[in-house]
Amino acid sequence: MHIAVLTLKIALPGCGSLKEKRQRMGGLHERFGRYPSVAVCESGDLDRHDASEWTFVVVGNASRDVTSLCSEIEDKLQRTVDGRVLDATREFL
C-alpha cells in the first residue's frame, strides 16, 4: 500500500469575499471525492479571501499509480480553478 499527501496552495487574486472564494474553488470535494482512493479537504487559509490551501490523501497499490493520480489532480485543478497554484507539495508515507 502506497500513500501520498498532496498539498496545494492557491492564490485567488481579486477575490473579495468567502462566498466568491467558494464559487471559484467550486466543487473540489465533489470532483475529487468521487475517486475511491482520494480523500480531500480544505486544510488552510480558511478565513482568507485571496488564498486557499487544499490537501489530498491518495492511496494505491503501486507507487506509480499514486504518483500518476497526484499529477492528474494537479493538472485538473490548474485547468478548472479560477486561481494560480503557488505551491504543490507531495509527501509519501
Rank of each mutant, 00 (worst) to 15 (best):
W54K: 00
S52F: 01
A39N: 09
T67F: 02
E42Y: 12
V66D: 01
C41W: 09
D65H: 13
N61R: 13
T55D: 06
W54H: 05
L46K: 11
S52E: 06
S68Y: 05
A39E: 10
T67W: 02
R48D: 07
E42G: 04
S68K: 11
F56W: 05
W54Y: 11
D65F: 07
D50T: 12
S37E: 15
E53H: 02
V58D: 00
H49C: 15
D65M: 09
R64W: 13
A39M: 07
T67N: 07
D50S: 12
D50E: 14
V58T: 03
D45F: 09
D47C: 09
S63H: 13
V66G: 01
S52L: 04
R64A: 14
S37V: 09
S68C: 09
H49S: 11
F56K: 00
S52A: 14
R48G: 06
T55M: 11
T67C: 06
V58G: 00
D65S: 13
W54A: 00
H49P: 02
D45I: 01
W54D: 01
C41I: 07
G60E: 08
A39T: 10
S43I: 07
E53D: 05
E53I: 10
V40P: 01
A51D: 04
F56G: 00
F56V: 03
L46V: 08
G44N: 05
H49T: 14
S43R: 02
V59K: 02
C41E: 07
A51E: 06
S63W: 09
V58Y: 01
A39Y: 03
W54P: 00
R64M: 09
V58L: 09
D65K: 11
A62P: 04
V59S: 13
A51C: 07
C41K: 05
S43Q: 05
C41A: 13
G60P: 10
S68N: 07
D65Q: 15
E53W: 01
R48E: 10
T67R: 12
R48Y: 04
F56Q: 00
C41S: 12
S52V: 08
D65G: 11
S68I: 02
V66H: 01
N61A: 15
E42K: 06
G60C: 12
F56C: 02
T67V: 12
L46W: 09
G44V: 03
T55Y: 04
V66R: 01
S37W: 10
L69H: 03
N61M: 12
T55C: 12
W54I: 13
V66M: 12
E53M: 11
D47I: 08
R64E: 14
S37A: 14
A39K: 06
N61Y: 08
R48W: 03
E42T: 06
S63F: 13
V58A: 07
L46Q: 14
V40I: 15
A39R: 07
W54S: 00
A39I: 03
N61L: 10
H49D: 14
V59N: 02
N61C: 07
A51T: 05
V38Y: 03
T55S: 14
C41L: 06
S63G: 08
G60T: 08
S43D: 06
D45E: 14
W54Q: 00
